[in-house]
Design a protein around this nucleic acid. Structure first.
Lengths: 156, 156
DNA sequence: ATAATAGCGATAATAATTCTCAAAAGAAGA
DNA sequence: TCTTCTTTTGAGAATTATTATCGCTATTAT
């Protein structure tokens, strides 16, 4: 029963912790903690979607119209977060790049090539094997990602 | 000794077979077999690199200057090949999308975040586990890809 | 509160990708 | 091989995605 792939979305840290980490990171690099950066982090945290820069921008305009957040700020902040390894970007097939918060539990992706749905899962056996492979090849592993493409239950 | 990650690039089919498959595919879809399509397929076959559309275009201009292949044709052909599952596209981190021939043996990627080098490997244990996971989740697996990010030997 | 500095939005600039169209090339049949 | 029909091509325009610039504003440290 263990070692069975499980299908879930789970956070390892709560928002306050995440925000704290972000503030530390900013301070370390002489960067400022701005409202824009905060709401972008918050929006990413509250989204279970994998967001493209543009969709994130729309979300932000809907939720915080008074801030009039510009698209450039979205790109800038996503780059900042990605450089700091707080978010990771993914690009599947034809669709463009999408971002997701890295602070969630690590997970891999199951992508339905018919309806486009992305299901997340974690499998300990694979996680472990990845570490071993990196070691064997003299690689210091920082991160990894895996995607399985196919047809989901519903589409069959 | 088995189950050890190995680092290689190996083709499962030779060029004539590949070309044959391509011709069949084209005929099936009422598409024409053109010189441009042939040299693009050939160039992808002969490259061990993961090619961005632009680098592919440069390669083609170098190797077949008389054809004056346009960038639009490169994009068109890559899309065609991707739609037909003959090539797959990858996008790692900041760099844009790159294409590789899918007819090579399946392999995963080890990406050095310092120098950008991409090493390919295959691990049977992971391959098998991926199939199991897809089954467990009621998914019909068509393909998969995996990336491990880290620092390679040389960069350490 | 002030001064110093980084960040912001708007938008211009650039890069990446797709579209348009007239000319050229491939396929099929006579 | 010649003709006809259809698809593809290259060139460049158009669109989309991303990044850079800049004067003004907000944040931080003092």
């Amino acid at each position: 029963m263990s070692n069975v792939a499980t299908n879930f979305t789970q956070r390892t840290i709560n928002y306050d912790q995440l925000l704290g980490d972000f503030k530390v990171l900013l301070k370390k690099n002489n960067l400022k903690f701005t409202i824009q950066r905060e709401v972008i982090l918050e929006t990413l945290y509250n989204s279970d979607e994998h967001l493209a820069p543009e969709s994130l921008h729309h979300l932000l305009q809907d939720k915080f119209p008074e801030l009039k957040i510009g698209i450039a700020t979205v790109y800038r902040t996503l780059s900042l977060l990605e450089d700091s390894d707080m978010v990771t970007s993914l690009s599947f097939g034809a669709q463009g790049k999408k971002y997701e918060l890295g602070a969630k539990n690590h997970h891999d992706h199951l992508i339905c090539t018919s309806c486009g749905t992305i299901t997340e899962f974690v499998d300990e056996e694979i996680e472990e094997r990845q570490h071993n492979i990196a070691d064997e090849l003299g690689f210091t592993m920082q991160d990894h990602s895996m995607q399985i493409y196919g047809i989901c239950k519903n589409c069959k």
